[in-house]
Design a protein around this nucleic acid. Structure first.
Length: 636
RNA sequence: GCUGGUGUGGCUCAAUGGCAGAGCAGCUCAUUCGUAAUGAGCAGGUUGUCAGUUCGAUUCUGACCACCAGCUCCA
């Protein structure tokens, strides 16, 4: 007998009982809902036998591990369906991902939407067949032989890697379909209820563009059809927040064929942008950054010294002027370095913080362009900080606090990634360890958590990246704090230390918004275009009920403008409802209605976006109300 | 850049190997209206660009450009 600790009691079972049988003994309903279990904290199949005393926890689709397991099995069903309909397809990999799963195949011709429909139908058959997923193992030699005979070249490659660890290779079998897989899985295919194949695209084998491009099928799966429908509906809803759509509707920016990836900012977009920049300036003055501005185009020699000419050439726009090579700056750092290098520096001046709203140009791959999120011309809210190595941690705390302060103003949720030493790097491992630890310490000391992005640092130093999600949950890097041990040396930068000796400073590259453009895109999606009052391009719109009220509106407009509010009058001879509808669709925070009554006693009837009619008040009262909102940067 | 898809008035979208159509927006006229669309009329398009096939191409083919999804890359 074995003693099993369940949620709040102990039960005894015959040794060798499976986790699934334990679940069944507790209740059939529970058993049906359970995807996978944890035995002593380790995620395992329900088919796993229990041979000794342990703690068992059952996980349903509501649990992240349960959900992943469920969707992972769905990906196996997809692979099985593909093998049935396209026996010549070679299997690569097929994991569960955040919102579903995918599977990569090597097939002679890409999948069409009709293929996906056929595959979905075949998957339904496999579900109906209710095939049990059985786990078994092979020795590495057997596994290689097995896959070589089948011509599964990708699987052979994967097995060979596992073989180096000297362990047996784990497989799962469902009906005629066998798959290299560490598991775990749900007990049978019949449990996968609601799924949909969402798209088919290309993807490089092992994510390396030098490798062959495989065909990836994305799908998602839920336990109930209603949940799947709700999910698909939510995606459609989310697309309405897309900043590319809202940017057009609200007159913020545009992109034209004449300049791919280089946004044109329209009048309302410029108001938004300038408001954001004003705020940025205020914050940076407070945090003690000195503002500089450096040239857009600089000589080749500068870029050779910085290393960009060699390492970043493909992404740079270069030009020849009077027979001499120049480059349009893709980064602001060399400019800041030239400013530092103007005169000798003492350790007493450090950290020296140069801020620069620097417009950069990068020749990004055409396929990477995406609205304002990924452009070829953008303005980084950059700063370059020169400091002594021992000042790193304090300075990083200072920057991370600044970033947190700014994101909090918008109530933007974000995640932090710490990228560590890549294979291709400069500097000693000791330096990297100290620097990486300084970054980690800094984040922990301000009460934040981070995830580690192994080996993803820049070749010159580790970095912290601040990621924000877009309307569809894709994350975009906005803020970043990068330590740089290389550039100061390349430019022979120095400061005189307390010891009277010359030392090389460390440089920190950092941005808060990342780029003004990307951040505006993020904000547009975050607020679904309904910007807080302080940011809204048009804060107030005045709506005369009839033409005879326009004059009264003009007076109110003058008062609002004098009070620093951004206001307009809708002067068209339309009915109130018509003008109101448009103002509402334009997401203007305040709509002020002026009719006979208001014109008479100098009041306005206030309608607040999202909150409806607020009744009448004097213009002075409205100004006080609005300005209080602007000052507090209230979000509603 | 790679894989697949898309490209029709300012916007959203129809249609077709044989005169390209609607709604909204715009303009004109009438209406002067109280919290999400007043009515009538007018105007607006070399169907992304360039070639090819064809008596005839917006439709079929090819190249290019741009956009969309994903890969890669990145602020």
């Amino acid at each position: 007998m074995v003693k099993v600790k369940l949620r709040d009691d102990y039960r005894e079972f015959e040794a060798g009982v499976t986790a699934g049988e334990i679940a069944k003994s507790i209740g059939a309903g529970l058993y049906k809902a359970v995807c996978v279990c944890k035995i002593n904290g380790e995620v395992k199949d329900l088919r796993t036998p229990v041979n000794e005393d342990c703690e068992v926890e059952f996980l349903t689709f509501d649990d992240e591990d349960g959900r992943r397991t469920y969707r992972h099995t769905a990906s196996h069903i997809l692979a099985q369906a593909v093998k049935r309909l396209y026996p010549e397809a070679k299997l690569a990999i097929g994991p569960a991902i955040d919102k579903g799963f995918y599977y990569d195949f090597d097939v002679p011709s890409p999948f069409t939407p009709e293929d996906l429909e056929k595959l979905e139908a075949e998957m339904k058959k496999i579900v109906k067949e209710d095939l049990p997923l059985e786990h078994f193992e092979m020795s590495p030699e057997e596994a290689i032989k097995y896959y070589e005979e089948k011509g599964e070249i990708y699987k052979v490659e994967l097995v060979k890697e596992h073989a180096d660890k000297g362990e047996n290779i784990s497989f799962y079998k469902q009906g005629e379909f066998t798959e290299l897989c560490a598991g775990p899985h749900i007990p049978s295919t019949g449990r996968v209820k609601a799924f949909k194949l969402t798209s088919a695209t290309g993807a490089y084998w092992r994510g390396d563009e030098k490798n062959k491009m495989l065909q990836r099928i994305y799908g998602t799966a839920f336990t109930k059809q209603a949940d799947l429908d709700a999910y698909l509906e939510a995606i459609e809803e989310a697309k309405k927040r897309d900043h590319r759509k809202l940017g057009k509707e609200l007159g913020l920016f545009t992109l034209r064929d004449e300049a791919p990836g280089m946004p044109f900012f329209l009048p309302y977009g410029m108001v938004l942008r300038n408001t954001l920049v004003d705020y940025w300036q205020k914050v940076h003055k407070k945090w003690d950054y000195l503002e500089i501005s450096t040239p857009q185009i600089m000589r080749r020699s500068l870029w050779e010294t910085s290393g960009h000419w060699e390492h970043y050439h493909d992404d740079m726009y270069t030009t020849v002027i009077d027979d001499e090579d120049f480059a349009i700056k893709p980064m602001n750092c060399p400019g800041a370095i030239l400013v530092y290098d103007l005169e000798p520096h003492s350790y007493k001046e450090l950290p020296l913080r140069y801020r620069e709203l620097g417009r950069v140009h990068r020749n990004e791959l055409s396929g990477a362009l995406h609205g304002l999120f990924r452009v070829r011309c953008f303005t980084q809210d950059d700063a370059h900080i020169l400091l002594a190595p021992e000042q790193i941690k304090d300075e990083v705390v200072r920057i991370a606090s600044l970033i947190d302060e700014v994101y909090d103003v918008f109530k933007l949720p974000y995640t932090i990634e710490l990228s560590t030493m890549p294979e291709d790097h400069i500097g000693t491992k000791e330096d990297w360890d100290i620097a990486t630890a300084a970054l980690a310490d800094a984040i922990t000391s301000i009460g934040k958590t981070y995830i580690i992005n192994e080996g993803d640092g820049a070749f010159y130093g580790p970095k912290l990246d601040f990621h924000i999600q877009d309307c569809l949950g894709r994350t975009w890097q906005c803020g970043t704090i990068q330590l740089d041990y290389q550039l100061p040396g390349r430019f022979n930068l120095e400061y005189t230390g307390a010891d009277g000796e010359k030392h090389t400073p460390v440089m920190i590259h950092r941005v808060v918004f990342g780029s003004i453009e990307r951040f505006l895109g993020v904000l547009t999606e975050h607020f679904a275009g309904a910007f807080p009052l302080w940011l809204a391009p048009r804060q107030v719109i005045l709506l005369p009920v009839a033409d005879r009220h326009k004059e009264a509106c003009e007076k109110v407009l003058a008062q609002l403008e004098a009070a620093g509010l951004r206001a307009e009058i809708d002067r068209r001879s339309e009915k109130l409802g018509y003008k109101l509808r448009e103002a509402q669709l334009q997401k203007i925070p305040y709509m002020l209605v002026v009719g006979d009554k208001e014109a008479e006693d100098g009041t306005v009837s206030v309608r607040k976006r999202g909150a409806g009619d607020q009744g009448s008040m004097s213009v002075a009262d409205f100004v006080a109300l609005a300005n209080a909102d602007v000052d507090s940067k209230a979000i509603w």
